[in-house]
C-alpha cells in the first residue's frame, strides 16, 4: 500500500512539475514582454493562458529532422535522458509523507546535476554541426567549473546542519532563515544556479547571437521540446532548492510555493535585465572568485561546527553539575584536553 501510494505521489509530483514548466514558459514570455514594454502572448483563449499547450501541440506536430552526418542513436536519446535526469532530481523534494524520504538527498541532487552535463555534451557532439559542437564544449566547461563551487557550498551547508538529509534544513531554520546570516553565500549560490542551468548572463551554450542556437541547433519538434522542458524543470528545481536552503523550507505551507515562484521569477527578471557575460570572465568568476570563496567558507564552517560541538558539550556538562559551571569556564581548555585523552 505504501509502495503504491509513493508511486502515485511521485507520479502526481512529476505531472505537476511538467504542468508548471508549461506555465513557467508562459510567465517568461509575459515578463519579458512587459520588461520590453509590450504585451506578451494574450490572444489564445482567455488572456493567453492556454498558450503553452498550443506551443506544445505546435512543437510536436513539426517535422523531425534526420541529420545525415549525426550519430543518430545518441542524437535521438540525449533529449530523453536530459528530461529524465531533470525529472529524477525532483524525486528528492523533501515532502513529509507519501514520497521518498532520502537520508542522502543532497548527494542524490549532486549526482543528478553531474549527470546533466553528459546529455548536453552528447547532444552537442552527436549532432555533428560546428555550432552544436561549440555550444556543447562551452556548456560542458561552464557547468563543470561551476559544479565544483556548487558542491563545496552545499558541503558547507552540510557541515552546518550535520547531515545530508534535505528535510533537516526545515528543522534548522525554524527560528531564522539561512538567508539572514548567510547572505553573501546566498548571492553566490544564486549565480551558480544561473550558470548551472545555462541561464542568461551565462547562456554561452545557446548564445543565439554567436552560435545560432548552440548545442540544440539540430533538434526540432520533439527533441527540442524535451530539451526545453528539461531546462525549465531544472530551473524550477534550482529555485526550489534555493527556497529550501535559504528561505525557510516550510514545505507544508503555501508561502513556500510562493517563494519558489518568486525565485523562478527572479531567474526570468535577470534574463530580461542583464546582457551576456564574456566567456573568459565567466571562467575567471568560477575559478578565481567563487572557488576560493567557497573553499574559505568551508574552512570557516568546519571551525563553526567545532565551536557548536564544544558549546553543546559545555552545556551538557553544566546541566549535570551546575555548581561546577563557573569553574568549568576557567579551566575549560584543560578539561577539553582531558576529554580528548579519555577518548
Amino acid at each position: 500500500m505504501e509502495f503504491i501510494l509513493s508511486l502515485v505521489g511521485s507520479l502526481i509530483l512529476v505531472i505537476c512539475v511538467l504542468v508548471s514548466v508549461a506555465f513557467l514558459t508562459l510567465l517568461e514570455r509575459k515578463v519579458l514582454g512587459y520588461i520590453q514594454i509590450r504585451k506578451g502572448p494574450n490572444k489564445v483563449g482567455l488572456m493567453g493562458i492556454p498558450q503553452p499547450f498550443c506551443d506544445a501541440i505546435k512543437l510536436f506536430t513539426k517535422e523531425q529532422t534526420y541529420p545525415l552526418l549525426s550519430n543518430y542513436i545518441s542524437y535521438y536519446f540525449s533529449p530523453i535522458f536530459s528530461l529524465f535526469i531533470s525529472l529524477i532530481a525532483w524525486l528528492c523534494i523533501p515532502l513529509f509523507i507519501k514520497l521518498f524520504s532520502f537520508n542522502l538527498g543532497i548527494l542524490f541532487f549532486l549526482c543528478c546535476t553531474s549527470l546533466g552535463v553528459y546529455t548536453v555534451m552528447i547532444a552537442g557532439w552527436s549532432s555533428n554541426s560546428n555550432y552544436a559542437l561549440l555550444g556543447g564544449l562551452r556548456a560542458v566547461a561552464q557547468t563543470i567549473s561551476y559544479e565544483v563551487s556548487m558542491a563545496l557550498i552545499l558541503l558547507s551547508f552540510v557541515f552546518l546542519i550535520g547531515s545530508y538529509n534535505i528535510l533537516d534544513f526545515y528543522y534548522y531554520q525554524s527560528y531564522i532563515w539561512f538567508l539572514i546570516f548567510l547572505f553573501p553565500i546566498s548571492l553566490v549560490w544564486f549565480c551558480i544556479c544561473l550558470a548551472e542551468t545555462n541561464r542568461t548572463p551565462f547562456d554561452f551554450a545557446e548564445g543565439e547571437s554567436e552560435l545560432v542556437s548552440g548545442f540544440n541547433i539540430e533538434y526540432s519538434s520533439g527533441g527540442f521540446a524535451l530539451i526545453f522542458m528539461a531546462e525549465y524543470a531544472s530551473i524550477l528545481f534550482m529555485s526550489m532548492l534555493f527556497s529550501v536552503i535559504f528561505l525557510g523550507c516550510d514545505l507544508f505551507s503555501l508561502m513556500f510555493y510562493l517563494k519558489l515562484t518568486f525565485i523562478s521569477f527572479v531567474f526570468i527578471w535577470v534574463r530580461g535585465t542583464l546582457p551576456r557575460f564574456r566567456y573568459d570572465k565567466l571562467m575567471y568568476l568560477a575559478w578565481k572568485s567563487f572557488l576560493p570563496f567557497s573553499l574559505n567558507y568551508l574552512l570557516f564552517f568546519i571551525g563553526f561546527k567545532l565551536f557548536i560541538i564544544s558549546y553543546m558539550w559545555l552545556i551538557n556538562f553544566s546541566k549535570v553539575n551546575s555548581n561546577f559551571y563557573f569553574y568549568l569556564m576557567f579551566s575549560k581548555h584543560m578539561l577539553i584536553q582531558a576529554h580528548w585523552l579519555v577518548n
Binding site: V14, L59, F60, T61, K62, E63, Q64, Y76, P79, I80, F81, L83, F84, L87, S221, G222, G223, A225, L226
Partner: peptide, 14 residues
C-alpha cells in the same frame, strides 16, 4: 514516459 513522448513526436511529425 519520456521515451513515449519522444516516440509520439516522431510518429506525429512523420
Amino acid at each position: 514516459i519520456t521515451s513515449v513522448v519522444m516516440a509520439l513526436a516522431s510518429i506525429l511529425s512523420k
